[in-house]
C-alpha cells in the first residue's frame, strides 16, 4: 500500500468513526426529539399547564368525558368521584379524584395522564391538575385531588366521547419534585 493511500485511508477512518459516534448520539437525541414531537402533536403532555386560547363556550354540542384511573402498587387507590360528565366545549370543568391509602405506609406518587383517543390530548386543556406535581399521601388517609380543564372549542365535530385517564405511580424513595411544572 502506498503512503498516499494510507493517509487517505486514515482520513476516511476518522470521518467514518466520527459518523458512528454521531449516530450513537443521535440514538440519544431521539429521546428529546420524540418528546418534542409528542409535545407538538400533543400526544403526551405530562406535567405542564396549558394556555387557553378560546374561552367561547359552544353550547350547541356536548361531549361526554369519562374519568378513568389506574393505580400501580398496593398502597393506594385512585378513583374519580364522578365516572363521567357531559360538558360543552369551552366550558370550565372541575372534577375531583379521590386518592385513598388503606395501607400503613406513607407513599409519594406521580400521576401520569393519558387520553383516549390519543389525539384528544390536543383539545383537553388542563389549567390545574394534581398530575403537575408529586402527591404525598399518609397511611390511612384519603385525599381529594382536583383537575380543572377546558375542552377546546376547536375539537372536531365527530368527537363525542373522550377519556381522561390517570395512572398513579409510586415514586420510590423520593419526596422532592423532580419535574418542575
Amino acid at each position: 500500500m502506498s503512503q498516499d493511500v494510507k493517509v487517505t485511508n486514515r482520513i476516511m477512518l476518522r470521518k467514518l468513526a466520527v459518523m458512528s459516534v454521531l449516530m450513537f448520539g443521535f440514538g440519544y437525541l431521539l429521546v428529546p426529539l420524540y418528546e418534542k414531537i409528542c409535545d407538538v402533536t400533543g400526544i403526551n403532555q405530562i406535567v405542564k399547564a396549558d394556555e387557553i386560547g378560546n374561552t367561547q363556550v359552544d353550547d350547541s354540542r356536548t361531549i361526554i368525558v369519562e374519568f378513568d384511573s389506574n393505580s400501580r402498587g398496593e398502597h393506594w387507590y385512585l378513583k374519580a368521584i364522578d365516572s363521567k360528565k357531559t360538558v360543552h366545549p369551552g366550558e370550565l370543568v372541575e372534577v375531583i379524584y379521590e386518592l385513598h391509602n388503606p395501607s400503613e405506609k406513607s407513599v409519594v406518587g406521580q400521576a401520569i395522564p393519558s387520553y383516549g383517543p390519543a389525539y384528544a390530548s390536543q383539545y383537553i386543556k388542563k389549567i390545574d391538575c394534581f398530575c403537575f406535581k408529586q402527591q404525598e399521601i399518609l397511611a390511612g388517609q384519603t385525599q381529594r385531588l382536583p383537575v380543572m380543564f377546558v375542552i377546546d372549542s376547536s375539537v372536531p365535530d365527530d368527537v363525542h366521547t373522550i377519556t381522561l385517564s390517570f395512572t398513579m405511580f409510586e415514586v420510590e424513595g423520593a419526596i422532592v419534585d423532580e419535574k418542575e411544572s
Partner: peptide
C-alpha cells in the same frame, strides 16, 4: 455505520 450505534444507544438506555 448509521444504525448499529443507534442500537447500541437503545440497549445502553
Amino acid at each position: 455505520i448509521a444504525v448499529m450505534p443507534v442500537l447500541a444507544g437503545a440497549v445502553t438506555m
